[in-house]
């Protein structure tokens, strides 16, 4: 492999690793750090990278052109972030070669599976039911809150799967949670609609964007931090407006 092919492979590996990390909810400092480490360990000491939330620009040597990758979708899958981190560590310890690293990243989608859907539903049930107790100490509505949260998460996933509009899935899920809670109260199954809605919304809380917004802004990345913040605020507003609409309609 000559020098040119090698620096091309370095750039491709760095861009793919960075893209996977940003798509799955890593903070920016970690992405920059990983790219620097990979290129340094691969011998490209003059590599430069510019990382933002929507794309990465990188060049391996000053006389070569730089490469760009665009990042369109952002989801939460922290296991992939952790796996890229592991590969980077193994590469630094010379356990895998650069080519193996690249192939591992390429088949990341096949290797790292999310939890099965029924387990996610149980997770949503656990979040809603238990946090309803912690926040409101209302023991009688345990099952109802869990049920509302579970159906809300189900609707969120289904809308996410069949549409491409950002924030629509949060909005529709919030409307459904509001309707369901008020209808459960009307049917006399549960006691307090407020508690049900608070519990039911907890699985949809934008925890990843909030944390990353704070961490990115504190590390001085004034491009990515505020855009994460906007993402978090938009999600929260979508949830809030959905619930407000349900309350307005059903009273």
């Amino acid at each position: 492999m000559n020098e040119r092919q090698k620096s091309k492979l370095v750039v491709e590996t760095c861009l793919l690793a960075g893209k996977i990390m940003i798509e799955n909810g890593s903070e920016m400092v970690r992405v920059t750090d990983t790219i620097d480490r990979i290129s340094h360990n691969a011998g490209a000491t003059e590599a430069r990278a510019y990382v933002t939330l929507t794309g990465i620009i990188m060049s391996a040597t000053p006389d070569m052109g730089s490469q760009v990758t665009a990042i369109d979708k952002r989801t939460f899958d922290l296991e992939k972030v952790s796996t890229v981190n592991d590969y980077s560590r193994q590469f630094a310890a010379k356990k895998i070669s650069l080519g193996e690293f690249y192939r591992c990243l390429k088949r990341m989608d096949k290797d790292v599976k999310p939890f099965p859907f029924w387990l996610q539903m149980i997770g949503a049930f656990m979040v809603s039911a238990t946090l309803e107790i912690v926040f409101r100490s209302n023991y009688t509505d345990f099952w109802a809150a869990g049920f509302v949260g579970m159906i809300g998460w189900c609707i969120y996933c289904l809308t996410d799967h069949y549409t491409d509009i950002r924030f629509l899935n949060e909005f529709i899920a919030a409307i459904c949670i509001g309707f369901m809670s008020i209808l459960l109260i009307r049917a006399g199954i549960a006691k307090s609609a407020d508690d049900l809605i608070i519990g039911g919304l907890m699985p949809l809380v934008p925890g990843v964007p909030i944390t990353n917004a704070v961490r990115d802004t504190l590390s001085g990345n004034l491009v990515s931090g505020p855009s994460r913040g906007i993402e978090a605020i938009m999600s929260a507003c979508a949830l809030g407006f959905g619930v407000a609409m349900a309350i307005k309609i059903l009273g």
Partner: peptide
């Protein structure tokens, strides 16, 4: 349990 449940959701 709430933390573990949220962990299941964000994988």
């Amino acid at each position: 349990f709430a933390t573990i449940g949220f962990g299941l959701l964000i994988n």
